[in-house]
Simulated assay, not measured.
Amino acid sequence: NILASAGPELEAWKPRSAAVVLTPHPGEMARLLGIPTAEVQRDRITLAREYARTRGVTLVLKGARTVIACPDGMAYVNTTGHAGMATGGAGDVLTGIIAGLLAQGLNASQAAAFGVYLHGATGETAARHRQHPASVIAGDIIEAL
């Protein structure tokens, strides 16, 4: 919300010495772009790639088939995950995984792509261990790691 309210001329988009990874869900991405969420959902890959390229960030556009867009224009689509992961705190777990991978020396694109894959795979494991997959909570994903 702070980035969205600052607009595209935000001083933080100037060159930085450290990598930046943003992890918006479609509603947050819509606010960043100033467009309706439905429009984000219509062209997730193109919008994510353009945002990452023009701002020099790695962008993780969360949702079914999460898109990882890199500053060099590359994009990846994740195939792991479970609908039960759409719960409060799951994105915080993802951010922690990515931060941990960055701390271990992976670059931002590697950390984001591997982090999203690992997050989704552990979410699938967590869903299998619940009586009903829709009852997955963030702690279940952490436990499955």
Score class of each variant (00 low, 15 high):
I2L: 13
I2D: 13
L3F: 07
A4T: 07
A4Y: 06
A6T: 08
A6I: 02
G7E: 03
P8D: 15
W13D: 12
K14S: 15
K14R: 14
P15A: 03
P15W: 04
R16P: 05
S17I: 06
S17Q: 13
A18I: 11
A18R: 03
A19Y: 01
A19C: 00
V20G: 00
L22V: 09
T23N: 09
P24S: 08
P26Y: 11
P26R: 12
G27F: 10
E28I: 07
A30Y: 03
A30V: 02
L32F: 05
L33K: 05
A38Y: 01
A38H: 12
E39N: 07
E39T: 05
Q41N: 12
Q41S: 13
R42V: 13
D43E: 13
R44I: 14
I45C: 10
I45K: 13
T46S: 11
L47G: 04
A48F: 12
A48R: 02
Y51F: 15
A52K: 03
R53M: 14
R53A: 09
T54N: 03
T54F: 00
V57S: 00
L59R: 06
V60T: 07
V60S: 07
L61T: 00
G63K: 08
G63E: 04
G63F: 08
T66G: 08
I68Q: 04
I68V: 15
A69W: 05
C70Y: 01
A75Q: 00
A75T: 10
V77M: 15
V77S: 11
N78C: 14
T79Q: 13
G81H: 03
G81T: 09
G81L: 12
A83R: 15
G84S: 07
M85G: 07
A86G: 01
T87I: 02
G88M: 05
G89R: 03
A90P: 02
G91Q: 01
G91K: 03
G91W: 06
D92R: 11
D92I: 14
V93R: 01
L94S: 08
T95R: 11
T95G: 14
G96Q: 04
I97S: 10
I98F: 01
A99Y: 09
G100M: 14
L102P: 10
A103T: 09
L106V: 03
A108H: 10
A108D: 05
S109W: 07
A112C: 12
A112G: 06
A113F: 07
L118M: 03
A121T: 01
E124P: 06
E124A: 08
E124W: 06
E124M: 14
T125M: 14
T125C: 08
R128F: 02
R130E: 08
Q131G: 13
H132I: 04
H132M: 11
H132E: 13
S135V: 06
S135R: 12
S135D: 08
V136Y: 03
I137G: 09
A138V: 11
A138C: 04
G139V: 05
G139S: 13
G139K: 00
D140K: 00
I141N: 01
I141W: 02
I142S: 01
E143V: 14
L145T: 04
